[in-house]
């Protein structure tokens, strides 16, 4: 869930470099994000995600609202949410964990470190962790 295509592409590159077999689906605002998760409208056929990467600054519906909605919905709240943002504000970190975010990652500015961080994130969630099945 990210509105900046350049960021999406970087994440895609990181996913490719980490060699984790995962499909990346992108939604560009908060409203679409909820439609995707509820499989409404044009997302009627969408698969339920194993993991969501959530940017906090989304158009239409803010990332924090999306997080709050996911975590208060009985059918959605077991989907792990990785908050992936540029914000380093302690307030944001606290608020996200308070809304039951599964982890909070500040995107490193340096490309190498960004790649390394994304790789370890993907490694963790797709190889170390056991995810719930529907």
């Amino acid at each position: 869930m990210e509105d900046n295509p350049a960021d999406v592409r970087l994440t895609r590159e990181a996913l490719r470099e980490s060699r984790v077999p995962a499909n990346l689906r992108v939604v560009v605002d908060g409203v679409e994000a909820m439609e995707f998760l509820y499989r409404r409208g044009r997302y009627g056929e969408a698969a339920r995600p194993d993991l969501t990467l959530l940017d906090l600054n989304l158009p239409r519906k803010d990332g924090r609202e999306v997080l709050a909605e996911i975590k208060s919905d009985l059918t959605l709240r077991c989907i792990p949410v990785v908050v992936l943002t540029t914000s380093e504000a302690g307030e944001d970190v606290f608020q996200c964990y308070n809304l039951h975010a599964n982890c909070y990652i500040t995107k490193p500015i340096d490309l190498d470190r960004f790649m390394a961080t994304m790789k370890s994130t993907f490694d963790f969630w797709f190889t170390v962790v056991k995810l719930p099945t529907e």
């Binding site: 350049a6 995107k107 190498d112």
Partner: peptide, 14 residues
């Protein structure tokens, strides 16, 4: 400024 700059830096690095 950080955000676009991060993009410039990341993509030139890439």
């Amino acid at each position: 400024l950080q955000e676009p700059l991060r993009m410039v830096a990341s993509y030139t690095q890439l």
